[in-house]
Design a protein around this nucleic acid. Structure first.
Length: 483
RNA sequence: GGCGACGUACCCAAGUGGCUAAGGGGGAGGUCUGCAAAACCUUUAUGCAGCGGUUCAAAUCCGCUCGUCGCCUCCA
C-alpha cells in the first residue's frame, strides 16, 4: 500500500510503526456550527481509509477529536445565549446526526479537548522546562525559533514567513510566529487552573496531548483538510517533537478542498453548503458517492449537476442488482450458455485484484469505482445473453458478492434496490404512495390487455410526470423513481 | 512578494515513460419493445493548455509561456 505523505511530498510504501497495527488520528471539528460539505469530505475520506486499512487485515486504532473549547465556541454561546459547553454539546450532537446519515463510522476514541486539560498542562510545562516555551502575562507561547524543524511540513522557512506582512503584532510574543500553548482567560471566560494562572488551552496543543495519550509518541497516520497543514499541523509537529524528542507522525495525509465556482468553499467567503441542506435535496449515498468519485487530494467542484450524476450512477448500480436478483429467481434447471460467459468470468477473476491495486495506490477510490462500473457493464451484457442454469447462477452470484465486497469498503451500495427507491421517493418528494402506483399499474395492465394503447400510454405519461417510470417485463410491470 | 497544486473529449474524471488514453453523464445512430423504460452495441480525444527539449519511446520527465486555483490569517 502506498500513501502520499505531505511531509515528504511523495507517495511512500506504507509500513506501520508496529507490524500489523495501524494508529491513525484525524482532526475533527470545532463544535460551534453545523457541518458543511467540506467537513463531510474529510470525514468520509478518513472513514474510507480506515475501512480499507481494516479490510487489508491490519488492526487499526482510529482517533478523531472534538475541539470543544475555543474562541468561536465562546462567541457562538454569546450569540445563541448558551453556555460554551452547551454550544459544544449541541453541535457535537448535530455532527453525529450528519455523519450517521453519511455512513461515517464512529472513531475508536473520540476525545474532547476539555477532558485532557491535565495532559495538556503537563506538556506545556515540559516544553517550558526544555526551553521551548515561555510564560508571558499568564499565557504560554511556543518559541518557534527553538525548534529546528519548524516549517518542514508546510515547506516554508521562518525567515520567509517573518518577511510576510500579514502577521498580527502581539507584544506578549518574542517572535510574531510564536503560537499560544495556553491562553490566559479574560474576565468571565471559561478557565481552568494552571501553574500560570487561570486560562484555557491553545488550539494546537489538544491534538498533541490526545494523540500522545492514545497512540503514543510516534504514530502512523495523521490527517485532516489541506488547510490544516499550516499552521495547525506544523505547530503540532513542533510541540510534540520538542516535547518527546521523537518523530511525531510517519505519514501526513491531507484531503483537498471542495470548491464552488472554482473557489474554495469556506466560512469566510460564505459560499458553503451545510450537509443538512444538501441532504434535503439529495440522498446521503449520492453525496458519499460524489465525494469518493474524485481522488481525495484533488479539488472537487460542488454543484447540483454533480450530485445528480452521482444519483444516476447509483441508480444504475441498483438497477443492475435488481436485474441480477430477478435472474437468480428464475428456474435454473435448464442449461443455456450466454455468449459472453468468458468475458464475465475473466473480469470476475481480476476484479478484486484491480480493486485492491486501485485502493493500494493512495486510496484511489475514483479508479476503484471505475472498476465497479466496468463489472456492471459486463454483467449486464452477460444477462442480455439470456443465460440459464447452475453455472450462470454461480457466475452472477459471484459477481454480486464481489460488488458487495468492494461496496463495503467504500460503504456505498449497501442497500436493497427497494430501499434505494424508497429513499429517492422521499428525497424527491414524490407525492404518490406505493398503493397509488400499483393501482395505476393495474389499470394500465387492463388497458393493455384490451389493446387500448392510448389509455395505457396515458397512464405511463401521467406517472412519468410525477417522477415514476414504468418498466414492462415479460409478465409484470415494475416501477422505479425517475432520476 | 514567498511557496505549492492543477490544466485529459460537450461535462465530470482515472491514467505520471512503452499494449487500442479507465469509468460515469450528455449527444447521435442502432438492437430489443405494441409504444416505452432498462440493458446492450456503434459513435463522440491519431490526441492529453501552448511551444520547445530529453528519450528508441512522453499526457506522463525537463524548460519556458498562457490560464486556473490554493496556502502564507480562523478554516475540513
Amino acid at each position: 500500500m502506498r500513501i502520499y505523505n505531505t511531509l515528504t511530498a511523495k507517495k511512500e510504501e506504507f509500513v506501520p510503526v508496529r507490524p500489523g497495527e495501524v494508529s491513525m488520528y484525524s482532526c475533527g471539528i470545532t463544535a460551534y456550527d453545523f457541518c458543511h460539505i467540506g467537513h463531510a469530505r474529510s470525514a468520509i475520506v478518513f472513514d474510507v481509509m480506515r475501512r480499507y486499512i481494516r479490510y487489508k487485515g491490519y488492526t487499526i486504532t482510529y482517533i478523531r477529536n472534538f475541539t470543544d473549547i475555543d474562541d468561536k465556541i465562546i462567541n457562538r454561546g454569546h450569540q445563541e445565549g448558551l453556555a460554551w459547553d452547551a454550544v459544544a454539546k449541541k453541535y457535537i450532537d448535530e455532527y453525529y446526526r450528519d455523519m450517521d446519515m453519511l455512513g461515517v463510522g464512529r472513531a475508536d476514541v473520540e476525545p474532547r479537548a476539555t477532558d485532557y486539560i491535565g495532559e495538556m498542562i503537563e506538556i506545556v510545562q515540559g516544553l517550558i522546562d526544555k526551553g521551548h516555551a515561555y510564560v508571558s502575562d499568564g499565557s504560554v507561547y511556543f518559541e518557534v525559533g527553538s525548534f529546528r524543524g519548524y516549517g518542514k511540513l508546510s515547506k516554508r522557512d521562518l525567515e520567509d514567513m517573518m518577511a510576510g506582512a500579514r502577521i498580527e503584532v502581539n507584544e506578549r510574543k518574542k517572535n510574531p510566529m510564536d503560537f499560544a500553548l495556553w491562553k490566559a482567560s479574560k474576565e468571565g471566560e471559561p478557565a481552568w487552573e494552571s501553574p500560570w494562572g487561570p486560562g484555557r488551552p491553545g488550539w494546537h496543543i489538544e491534538c498533541s496531548a490526545m494523540s500522545l495519550k492514545h497512540l503514543g509518541e510516534t504514530f502512523d497516520i495523521h490527517g485532516g483538510g489541506a488547510d490544516l497543514i499550516f499552521p495547525h499541523h506544523e505547530n503540532e509537529i513542533a510541540q510534540s517533537e520538542a516535547f518527546t524528542g521523537k518523530p511525531f507522525v510517519k505519514y501526513w495525509v491531507h484531503n483537498g478542498f471542495i470548491t464552488v465556482d472554482k473557489e474554495k468553499m469556506s466560512k469566510s467567503l460564505g459560499n458553503f453548503f451545510t450537509i443538512r441542506e444538501i441532504l434535503h435535496k439529495f440522498d446521503a449515498e449520492a453525496v458519499r458517492f460524489f465525494l469518493l468519485s474524485t481522488h481525495y487530494r484533488s479539488p472537487i467542484e460542488f454543484s447540483d449537476e454533480q450530485l445528480k450524476e452521482a444519483e444516476v450512477s447509483i441508480d444504475r448500480y441498483y438497477t443492475t442488482v435488481l436485474r441480477a436478483r430477478d435472474f437468480l429467481a428464475l428456474d435454473q434447471s435448464v442449461e443455456k450458455k450466454s455468449v459472453d460467459e468468458q468475458a464475465l468470468s475473466d473480469i470476475l477473476d481480476s476484479f478484486i485484484v484491480r480493486f485492491r491495486e486501485a485502493m493500494d495506490d493512495d486510496f484511489n477510490t475514483a479508479l476503484a469505482i471505475g472498476g465497479i462500473f466496468e463489472l456492471i457493464r459486463i454483467l449486464n451484457k452477460y444477462l442480455d445473453g439470456k443465460p440459464l442454469g447452475v453455472r450462470s447462477a454461480e457466475l452472477v452470484t459471484r459477481a454480486e458478492a464481489l460488488l458487495r465486497e468492494a461496496g463495503d469498503v467504500l460503504n456505498i451500495f449497501a442497500r436493497t434496490p427497494e430501499e434505494w427507491y424508497k429513499a429517492l421517493m422521499a428525497v424527491k418528494k414524490i407525492s404518490l404512495t406505493e398503493p397509488d402506483i400499483l393501482s395505476r399499474i393495474e389499470a394500465r395492465r387492463q388497458a393493455r390487455e384490451n389493446k387500448e394503447w392510448a389509455a395505457a400510454d396515458g397512464i405511463r405519461k401521467d406517472l412519468d410526470a410525477l417522477g415514476i417510470v414504468l418498466e414492462d417485463k415479460k409478465d409484470s410491470t415494475t416501477w422505479k423513481v425517475k432520476v
